[in-house]
Computed example of a mutant assay.
Amino acid sequence: MAAPHWIALFACILAAWVVLYAMALPSDLRAMSQLYGANFWASLCVVTPDAAGFVRVVLMWALMSAAMMAPTALPAFATYDDLSNTEARTDFGQLVLGYIVVWIGFSILAGAAQMLLFTAGLLDPLGQSLSRMLSGALLIGAGLYQFTPMKEACLSKCRRPMTFFMQHWDEGPLRNGVRLGLVCIGCCWALMLLAFVGGVMNILFMGLATLIMVFEKLPDLGRYITKPLGRALVLGGLALGAGIF
């Protein structure tokens, strides 16, 4: 029988996906934007350039982070849970709390970036890029980041969670959760920002991106994904910028 803390964690992940699905606008309403333009979406309060709009955007990013990133960290959470059988100071809840706090911080920064891009006319109210150059730059940037030492260093920690936790064990569960969150951001921040290309509330994009990030962190499979994905993103960005598609 599953332990209560695992049931609670999976319930939170499922709830985040359910809420995101409920928040995603149906295709018929999206099609109406071609008839009514940005004013139509503003009237629906999808995004508004004010404090209330910023809060909604940050909440949306926090839900996205919970739904997309928690599944990628499940191997690390399981490793930490296994250690709780042999080591002291293994409060699973504090570990997850530290992880969540870091991603809330990322959500605030991503929400601020979305609001700035929206007010500059580079994003539509659904958070999707209106600029071919912006989309191309995001794709190329995410692709190039796949080849950086920072990406490799963070991925190596995610792929070997036992080693990661033993190196920092004495810091306690909360700080280990914060460290794990920072490492996950180091792995995935550039891919997460591709939501501005695919659409921030695009469920299909979120599902596909989640699968990619889960597989990329697997020690046996991930090494076959990182660099080919980087090449594909760079080529896609160049093609988009050149107007090929």
Rank of each mutant, 00 (worst) to 15 (best):
M133V: 08
L134G: 12
S135D: 14
S135T: 04
G136H: 04
G136C: 04
A137N: 09
A137F: 02
A137M: 05
A137W: 02
A137S: 10
L138I: 09
L139H: 03
I140W: 09
G141N: 05
G141D: 01
G141T: 01
L144M: 12
L144V: 12
Y145K: 04
Q146D: 15
Q146K: 04
Q146A: 06
Q146H: 14
F147I: 05
F147E: 10
F147R: 00
T148N: 02
P149V: 05
K151D: 12
K151E: 11
A153W: 12
A153P: 00
A153T: 11
A153N: 04
L155N: 11
L155A: 06
S156V: 13
S156T: 06
K157A: 12
K157L: 14
T163S: 10
F164D: 04
F164Q: 02
F165I: 02
M166I: 10
Q167I: 00
Q167Y: 11
H168Q: 10
W169K: 13
W169V: 00
D170R: 10
D170C: 02
D170T: 09
D170P: 15
E171H: 05
E171S: 10
E171P: 13
P173I: 04
P173M: 11
P173D: 06
R175Q: 12
N176S: 10
N176A: 12
G177A: 15
V178Y: 03
R179H: 03
R179K: 08
L180R: 11
L180N: 04
L182V: 13
L182W: 05
L182S: 12
V183R: 02
V183E: 03
C184S: 14
C184P: 06
C188V: 08
L191I: 07
M192W: 07
M192T: 02
L193E: 05
L194E: 04
L194W: 12
A195Y: 15
F196Y: 15
F196P: 01
V197G: 00
V197R: 01
G198C: 09
G199N: 06
G199I: 03
V200Q: 11
N202Y: 15
I203A: 09
I203R: 05
I203C: 02
L204C: 10
M206C: 09
G207P: 14
G207V: 00
G207F: 01
L208N: 10
L208E: 07
A209Q: 10
A209P: 15
T210N: 09
T210L: 10
T210Y: 01
L211F: 01
L211Q: 14
M213A: 01
F215W: 07
E216P: 05
K217A: 12
K217I: 07
L218Y: 05
D220H: 13
D220E: 07
L221H: 15
G222Y: 02
Y224F: 08
Y224K: 15
I225T: 14
I225W: 09
I225H: 07
I225A: 13
I225N: 13
T226S: 13
T226Y: 09
K227F: 11
P228T: 04
L229K: 00
A232M: 12
A232I: 11
L233G: 00
L233S: 01
V234E: 13
V234W: 10
